[in-house]
């Protein structure tokens, strides 16, 4: 065997072993989608990747069992609002912390860093009473405000700050001489030059809100206010046992669009996570 052939065989073995490792990463998605098409009976029969009978009705019943369309919509609009607000709030604060010398800026950075150390589980109890006192339980307000101003918002702020600090300062000086106010410089120069950072913030913020579970669990009680993560666990029979065919059909509906977007924008999404992860 030549050296090249050896290398070739080595590489093939390598890919095969990686593929075996990949099974538990891929298998759940495939099983989820295929089981979503099975009937309640078939689900517990002999395991097969493809259903014997494709039961499209599951995907209708999902919407009949609970206001799933409404819940889907809730998740989308909340995630969009959270993303929009986070982009504005974090890029404003990140810009000031990166570019303007002002009294208290160092203190503020220390405070914000400390927020990163405190898990949401610690502050959720008083926040619950605060929201109840404001009469905002069972509304979407806490699901919007808490992520924007919580640790997730702080991560976004630092990400923006870091990006702004790396922008050439001369450009902003030129903007100032051209007659822009600080807001103008932020909006017309700093932001257009920060698209990669804004995209990263948008991606991680959207996903964070989309997957949020503890806050909806604590604050929401009526079905039509539910968001997707809360709704998914809710397909149960009167005894509280899961109705698997509906649950998996619904989960597929919630997961598959995200996975499709992820596969399309894979590079961008992975990079966004890497950008925030390194900060840690």
């Amino acid at each position: 065997m030549t050296y090249r052939q050896q290398q070739r065989i080595k590489r093939i073995c390598w890919v095969i072993s990686l593929s075996i490792v990949a099974i538990p990463f891929v298998f759940p998605f495939l099983w989820m989608v295929s089981s979503g098409f099975k009937s309640a009976n078939e689900i517990f029969g002999q395991p097969s990747l493809l259903p014997d009978v494709w039961r499209w009705r599951n995907f209708v019943e999902v919407f009949e069992y609970q206001p799933f369309a409404r819940q889907y919509f809730n998740s989308i609009y909340i995630a969009l609002v959270v993303t929009g607000l986070t982009l504005i709030v974090s890029s404003l604060a990140g810009y000031a912390l990166a570019r303007i010398r002002f009294a208290g800026s160092v203190l503020l950075v220390v405070f914000l860093l400390s927020a990163l150390m405190v898990p949401e589980e610690v502050t959720i109890i008083p926040n619950f009473f605060l929201i109840r006192w404001l009469g905002l339980t069972d509304t979407h307000v806490p699901l919007i405000l808490l992520p924007v101003f919580g640790p997730q918002g702080v991560v976004a702020t630092f990400l923006m700050r870091q990006y702004f600090m790396a922008l050439p300062k001369d450009l902003e000086d030129a903007g100032e001489l051209d007659g822009l106010s600080r807001i103008g410089i932020w909006w017309r120069i700093a932001l257009p030059l920060s698209r990669p950072a804004l995209a990263a913030v948008a991606i991680i913020t959207f996903l964070h809100s989309w997957n949020l579970f503890l806050e909806p669990l604590v604050f929401l009680s009526s079905l039509e206010k539910f968001t997707l993560p809360l709704a998914l666990g809710n397909f149960t029979d009167p005894y509280g046992m899961p109705l698997w065919h509906l649950q998996l059909a619904a989960t597929s509906l919630a997961v598959v669009p995200v996975i499709i977007v992820y596969v399309i924008a894979q590079r961008q999404i992975v990079e966004s996570f890497a950008m925030t992860g390194v900060k840690g």
Partner: peptide, 29 residues
């Protein structure tokens, strides 16, 4: 404020806005 002093500056790095064309750069102010 800088913009109201009636001065214009040419920077070492040129400081041209990368997201604007030459014409937009010159007319931005």
């Amino acid at each position: 404020q800088a913009a109201r002093r009636g001065v214009a500056m040419v920077f070492q790095s040129y400081a041209l806005y990368p997201h604007l064309t030459v014409e937009q750069n010159m007319g931005f102010g």
